[in-house]
Design a protein around this nucleic acid. Structure first.
Lengths: 200, 200, 200, 200
DNA sequence: AATGAATGAGAATTCATTCAT
DNA sequence: GATGAATGAATTCTCATTCAT
């Protein structure tokens, strides 16, 4: 068990250190030596655990996907008991909190998706779609309720996701002017106008 | 002048070729040799014109900024004669056309901004801000007119920019479901709802 | 004894697996990890039995030498009762059968003798000489009998060995045109002409 | 021209040095660093000329093939004016001189043919066949003349080639007992007996 | 203006081997 | 006897850049 534990720890350590370096300097700018050094580990030892540099990106990818996954899972049920508008507002707030917590991860994949194989890219995209679908189902519900009026809920849902991600990838601007709370308040307002609007 | 002209041509050729390669495989994955080879040019000759690999990114950066710049310039005046709503819709349509034309460039900078110095990053950011300001001024005008109701025009303006850029950086999804025309129609509708909404 | 037996089995297993890998991909291209893996054995366990990679080559070497040795032993006595010509033909046939059976081993040492220490190389060479001497003694006997006429029986003996080994190291060519039986017939004929010839 | 010349020199230098190292320690045991160092050249400079380690083996391979090729060419014509027996003896003597001069090369390819691609191996094999064919045509001529009696000239021709190559790959033994002249004399005698013998 | 040659630094990865448990 | 973890040294190869001509 001690063995087992140590092995997992090492792998965890590698993942954690590598993720930090990847985020800080980018995947291509990070060398395996850098990662090993920061782990106080011989390069060969690192290879004992991971197989290749790309495998590390892989692991980080899986971890990132799982983060999103659990966000979706955690919030699915809680929303059923609220009204459409409350639910949407709640989901936006929670997702923005999530983006805030994992902003580095969010931005990272906006930038480095290029380095994934197409298979992995699909996985990431699919997970992002399922986040969008969480919002989409809320919008559909609101339409049934007569609370929302929308020509196309898919675009609207993706809009919501992107406007939340924007808190991460435009942080250089937004942080200068708003707190997360303010940003949440404004965006929620705008999005609610968007979905309940008398468009066109 | 012949000299001068040739020199400029060479530089232009390098920029063009490099941009294509950068876009296709990323800045770090593109080697100076690759660029030189595609220009049918010796590496040393290339260095005669550009100084460093990073300088090429620089040039591409300046070029990209100028593209945005001219977009702003071209559209500023045309908008004055329209009504607030017409002007906004027109600006969105024009910007989406621009994003569609330069989608590779747009996506590139979402991904590779990391490789810029902070000074250059500032320049890029500033230019993006000035695009946002184009929209912001339209929003401000609409508020004065009583056509729009908005608590914060800055966020709303950035929303518009990001939702347009999204046509480029989520193309893997959007292209599957919408033409540019459809996308333009839907987003314009949603944005107009957003800005003319009863804020919360 | 159970212990002892198991230990010998393990060693035998290593030798067998290693020999197969050496033959297939060459000594240098075979890694200790490969061998251990194919033995379903930990690398360290393997080292518990063998000491070094080179020692494995050693073992294989000894095994190869012993193969030749037993060939010589097995055939020495049987030959006494035949006539010189019969004996020579018989010895050639038997040796060709041996080469055919151990063609991989034969070829291997033609190729990898380089990787032996000079001491080991001597051992291999000596054993090859003793194979040659088997033939040489037959030739000497034939000369005494007046059946063969030869200026130098050493060269003639080595010729025989090499022409038989050739069945292994030129198999890429010979197999296309001849069966072992045909090859045996032709070579026996040629060699008999050689040794009974009215030369020069 | 100076340029051109230097470039060829460098390549020639690399080939020469590499060949020597390959012969001395084997292809796999020779590192690119070793080669570069012996050339007083930076590793990257070496790669400026050759592309890959394997390409060097390639070059050496081509060179070796060309050596054999020119041996065949040089001797083809000279043989026409002699009698069959004279011609065969002459060809053997010349080929043995060739093997003696290029014994390292000869032995090398007996050992390292494994490291060639199958395409390259074919090329080497084909060239060896054409050497054999030189002898085979002499044997065929001798049969027409009624000078030689042979059931299969292909095997006989390959025998000659192999018995000559043997001077190189059994040098550890043969050099102890014979000079090249003695070896030539004995083998010529044996081969002539072989080909003019009363086949069985 | 143009180029072939050159280079130091560094990339990812593999290897035979050892050691503590 | 067995094993997972560890390592120093070495591998092939690439890169951005410079320099003499």
């Amino acid at each position: 068990m001690g063995r087992r534990k140590k092995s997992i720890d090492r792998l965890g350590q590698i993942l954690k250190v590598a993720a930090a370096l990847f985020i800080k300097t980018g995947y291509l700018n990070t060398s395996v030596r850098d990662i090993a050094a920061k782990c106080h580990m011989n390069v060969a030892t690192l290879y004992h655990y991971v197989g290749s540099k790309y495998k590390i990106l892989n692991l980080f990818h899986e971890y990132s996907v799982s983060l999103l996954e659990s966000f979706v899972e955690e919030n699915k049920l809680a929303l059923d008991e609220m009204s459409s508008e409350e639910a949407l507002a709640y989901a936006i707030r929670r997702y923005l909190e999530w983006v805030d917590e994992y902003q580095d991860v969010t931005v990272f994949w906006y930038q480095e998706a290029r380095n994934l194989t197409s298979v992995q890219f699909e996985a990431l995209a699919m997970q992002e779609e399922s986040t969008a679908q969480l919002f989409q189902s809320l919008l559909d519900r609101g339409i049934k309720d007569g609370k929302f009026r929308l020509a196309d809920t898919r675009i609207a849902a993706h809009n919501i996701v992107v406007l939340c991600d924007m808190w991460a990838f435009r942080r250089w601007l937004l942080r200068r002017h708003y707190t997360l709370q303010e940003y949440t308040k404004y965006q929620t307002g705008l999005i609610l106008s968007q979905v309940s609007g008398r468009a066109h």
